[in-house]
Design a protein around this nucleic acid. Sequence first.
DNA 1: GCGAGGTAATTACCT
DNA 2: ACAGGTAATTACCTCGCG
Length: 778
Amino acid sequence: MPYWIIDINHEVVIRENVKRDEMWLWTIDDKGERLVLVDGSFKPFVHIEPSSDAQLENFVEGLKRELVGLLDDVRIVEKRKLGRPVKVVEVVFKDSDAKEKGLERLSDFRGVSNVYNSDIRPSLLYFITRDLKPSTWIDAKIIGSLKISNVPYEVREIRDPRVVEVRDPPSLREMYVLAFAFRKIGTPNPDEDPIAFIAVAVDNNEPFIIDGDNDKEIIDQLIKLVAKIDPDLVVGWETNRWVFDYLGRRAKVNKIRLALGRNGDEPRAGVYGHVSLVGRIHIDLRDIAEGIAELKMKTLEEMAIHHGIWSGESIDLIDLNDMWFANERESVKKYALKLVDVLRRLWKLYFDYTVHLSSLVGYPMDYVLKASPGHRVDGYIVYHSMKLNELIPRKIESPYEKYKGAIVFTPHPGLHSNVAVLDFASMYPHIIAKYNVSPDTLMRSDEESEAYVAPEVKHRFRVSPDGLYKSAILKLLEARKQIKKRIKELPEGPERTALEAQERAIKVVANAMYGYMGWVSSRWYMKEVAEAITAWGRNTIITAAELASKRFGLKVIYGDTDSLFVEYRGEVINKLIEAIEDELGMEIKLETVYKRILFTEAKKRYAGLTINNELDLTGFEAVRGDWCDYAKRVQERVLSVLLNTGDVNYAINVAKEMLELFKSGNFTIKDVTIWKSLDKPLAEYKARAPHVSIALQLSKKGWRFKVGDKIGYVVMKGQGPIYERAVFYADADKSMIDIDYYITNQIIPVILRVLEPVGVTEDQLMVKSTKGGLDQFF
DNA sequence: GCGAGGTAATTACCT
DNA sequence: ACAGGTAATTACCTCGCG
């Protein structure tokens, strides 16, 4: 009977007067039955590497004496440390409490050189030692049944779980939750402001509102509803950031228990800010929004717009708050119902992806979404190294050391026609695989064997055997290749969508591998390894650029890291691609062809019109979140006209027309709002910036800001620095807006940025506009 | 005291 | 808390000048 793992939690319990560690696996079997599988066989353990002068047998005896009363077993085992065999002592404790005590005793024990595994969470250690992955199907030996108080399911005691065949996840009971609290002025405060209502959707049923005379009733109803529906999956928005914390504090005020877990537990604050509900998967969709770079404003509405599933007007939280107090409560609730439906539709787009990311990385679905790219790679590598019998170093932060990264070519400014973009496919991963770049293959200076030598930096890597990183990345690259092949063979449909999601999950981990190697907190951090990869990368792109220009006479217009922008001349491009692949042994692809492309003198900025008539904007203000909408729109339109027609005067006229419209007051407050992030706590700012100064003012009025929040401001008429004239966008009075500021500091600069390379000067924007403007073009 | 010119602080982007 | 490379604005400092 296969079981699909929903959630896992680790408990230390006393059963029949014996204390033991238990792993509770919350599962669904293939008949849709919910079951808890309890494995009581897990004993926490560490690996201890004795210092080189220690006598192994004596050392073991010493350990036994030191840890008397805490041990289950002590034995010498063969492991590998950076590929070389080593003998270490496996110390198995009776239970996790004993482990805590034991580690304390060991902290000053003589002869210990290294302790391994002590910083890996028990549930993860359990999973990796048994080669289990969450969000997969498993099988196990049933050895009996147990009771867990408050758990309404059958609980089976198991041994020897193992992964069974890969297939689709079972159908899950889903609950979507949006909680609302309001406050007349400022951020709602859980000690004073009640939960106003909660919008809920269950599975695919009609959304509804949980309402009540006070929030004790509301929270009570929520608890009862969760108990009744008993969802496997709870999806919310900002639930990790504040909602569950807020609900918890309101529950406390109302003297009720926020029993939302499957065992009746309250939400638990987990690692890295994740809130877990025992036995359920809790997804905060905001965590996914965080990873979407194109999404400037991390709101549910913006995310829905990004995915093309939003219709109608968005109402921002401040307006919603005002509506609530203006007694337009029914409209607020109606809007909330729409939001909860959108939440559900968005989650469906990410379900497959999250399942695959979870089973690839080895973290439960909710935790893997919250985990940073670095921790996702860490999860993947930890599993992989366990399979290779490698010791898993503890995470320690090494001192920061700067090293050289990628190369960016200086662009040829101006308007170009017919430009091809060539991209090396997964350049860094392929460099790692090709040159066996890894901490366990790096050669010491006195070592002699066949080696790959990195250019410039001259670090050497053994040709064989395959290193930790090479084998890890090859698995990903090969899996991805297979999936891509299958995708090509499939028609559009759910099967293909799921494969695409799997491919995305693999890509996310593969792309972060290089970064992980240069991360000072990574378990296998080694500067030389990261440095060698970028050195080979620079060498690769420079060689390719030389082939293009010297052998094929193709002008290289620009290039960044793993891409080359070259003149597009028919078959010559194919010959170039062949030559590059031949001589460098790396795959390079024709990514895009631009009919026209504009470069300024700046790197990392260009605008192109593809042969499919798509406008690609890169780096410019128009794609940045910290310029006002009006200026961004002007820049985009000017570029669109310039690239579509190639007519500079036309572009000038469009610019002037939009400038005139602006001068005559044809804009809204939102058009001129500038949004900037607070990247650190307010107290830590050294410089006076407009958004910081506004956040400080608002703090005094009862607003609370978290790191990462965005502050919108508008610049008003008057004297002095901008930070003195900036006003919170919601408090702005349109008649006081400093139109001149916006013209000289926002609109004119973004126009000139893209028109100066084609010879336009500021004076040409100043004379009144004539004919041939915007209307004619659009 | 004032303006020119440089620089630190800050944010957000690219690959 | 994945990496380095880059552009750009604003506040603020230094310096020369009167």
